[in-house]
């Protein structure tokens, strides 16, 4: 059971985001509950990143509500975000994690141990002292994941964490996410890789033009999609 002040479920109610006079997100109702990972899929520009940013509290909706565990202004202390293109601080790999630990008020005495654990988890133990910006793209992606996990999140939002990775690196990240999900951390991940969604997710949200077209269990989504859009999306001919 979650503590009573849990930030889950994450709920959207009549949530709209407008930029200029364009509506880029328009969600009637969406509930993301604790449990297996949720995959958010959809064509380019369908609003996946926007949805995640709203879910993190980085962006305020133009209209409607977003709640975490029923509260609109819940503290973001136990949420973490992995950006589509993560930016490393101009420090060593270890210091990048140390920074995240410090910002989450983790006492100095335990930080060193946590840094080692997190680097080991993402397979970067040998890179501790290396300037983070000198790591390869895939290594930076894993370091960013470790940095997000340093916040000890209950809700981890990941924006296309495997998009720029080769198959082996993508699988490595997938394995880490599966392990993390096993610890009870709720994962919401956007992806273009339907294979990743199929292997990882418990439920799938299909976005199209800012709207939720379908939100079903992963097994159902991939075998007997309810909507025409979901069928066409999986066939590769649903465009923005």
């Amino acid at each position: 059971m979650r503590a009573p002040d849990s930030g889950l479920p994450l709920q959207f109610e009549h949530t709209r985001v407008e930029a200029g006079n364009r509506r880029i997100l328009d969600i009637e109702a969406l509930t993301i509950a604790s449990g297996a990972p949720t995959a958010v899929v959809g064509p380019n520009g369908s609003g996946k990143t926007t949805l995640l940013r709203i879910g993190m509290g980085l962006l305020k909706p133009t209209a409607g509500r977003v709640t975490w565990g029923g509260r609109e202004n819940a503290a973001a202390t136990r949420r973490a975000f992995l950006f589509q293109r993560p930016v490393m601080l101009m420090r060593s790999a270890a210091s990048n994690i140390d920074y995240a630990l410090a910002s989450a008020d983790v006492p100095r005495a335990v930080r060193k141990r946590k840094i080692s654990e997190l680097l080991a988890l993402v397979g970067l133990s040998d890179f501790e002292a290396r300037p983070a910006r000198h790591l390869s793209g895939g290594e930076q992606q894993r370091l960013a994941l470790a940095r997000a996990l340093a916040r000890d999140p209950e809700l981890l939002l990941l924006d296309e964490p495997t998009a720029s990775l080769d198959p082996a690196a993508a699988k490595a990240v997938e394995d880490i996410l599966r392990e993390v999900a096993g610890r009870g951390i709720k994962i919401v991940v956007t992806t273009h890789d339907l294979g990743t969604a199929r292997r990882l997710a418990g439920d799938v949200v299909l976005l199209h033009r800012g709207r939720v077209i379908e939100h079903t269990l992963s097994g159902i989504f991939f075998t007997q999609p309810k909507t025409e859009e979901a069928r066409r999306f999986q066939a590769g001919d649903l465009l923005i």
Binding site: F81, F83, V87, L89, R91, A100, S103, A104
Partner: peptide, 24 residues
């Protein structure tokens, strides 16, 4: 421009952000 989103996602205060920018 590079740091803004990352620091926001880590809940870093304005004072903390100033210190981070000056140091880095």
């Amino acid at each position: 421009v590079q740091y803004r989103d990352e620091l926001a996602a880590m809940n870093v205060s304005t004072a903390g952000s100033v210190a981070t920018l000056l140091w880095d």
